[in-house]
Computed example of a mutant assay.
Amino acid sequence: MFLLPPFPAGLRERTSPRLKLNVALGNIAGRPDGTYFWERAGIDTSELPDPTLRHTISSIQTTLEDFNLITSKKVSQHLAGKGNAVAIPLMNVTAFGDRVPPHENVRLSQAKVEDVLLAPLSWCPHPENMISMHVAGDSMHPVIPSGSVLFVDTAATDRDQVNGRLVVASHRDLGFKVARLQRLAGSDLLVSANPKYLPIDVSNATRWKIFGEVLWWVTKDVKQES
Results as ranks from 00 to 15, higher is better:
residue 135 V to S: 07
residue 136 A to Q: 12
residue 138 D to N: 13
residue 142 P to D: 07
residue 142 P to F: 07
residue 145 P to H: 01
residue 146 S to F: 10
residue 147 G to P: 03
residue 148 S to W: 00
residue 149 V to I: 15
residue 150 L to M: 03
residue 153 D to M: 03
residue 154 T to I: 12
residue 154 T to V: 08
residue 158 D to R: 12
residue 159 R to L: 06
residue 160 D to W: 15
residue 162 V to G: 02
residue 162 V to D: 05
residue 165 R to K: 11
residue 165 R to C: 09
residue 167 V to E: 05
residue 169 A to M: 02
residue 170 S to E: 01
residue 171 H to K: 10
residue 176 F to H: 07
residue 176 F to T: 05
residue 179 A to Y: 03
residue 179 A to M: 09
residue 179 A to I: 07
residue 180 R to C: 04
residue 181 L to N: 10
residue 181 L to K: 15
residue 182 Q to D: 07
residue 183 R to Q: 10
residue 184 L to R: 12
residue 184 L to H: 14
residue 184 L to C: 11
residue 185 A to E: 15
residue 185 A to I: 12
residue 185 A to P: 09
residue 186 G to F: 13
residue 187 S to E: 13
residue 187 S to A: 12
residue 187 S to W: 11
residue 190 L to V: 07
residue 190 L to H: 07
residue 192 S to V: 13
residue 193 A to T: 13
residue 195 P to R: 08
residue 196 K to H: 10
residue 196 K to A: 10
residue 198 L to P: 11
residue 198 L to W: 11
residue 199 P to K: 04
residue 203 S to L: 08
residue 204 N to G: 10
residue 205 A to E: 13
residue 206 T to H: 13
residue 206 T to Y: 07
residue 206 T to A: 11
residue 207 R to C: 09
residue 211 F to A: 04
residue 211 F to H: 08
residue 212 G to P: 02
residue 213 E to G: 10
residue 213 E to Y: 09
residue 215 L to E: 00
residue 216 W to S: 04
residue 217 W to C: 06
residue 218 V to W: 05
residue 220 K to Q: 00
residue 223 K to V: 14
residue 225 E to S: 01
residue 225 E to V: 00
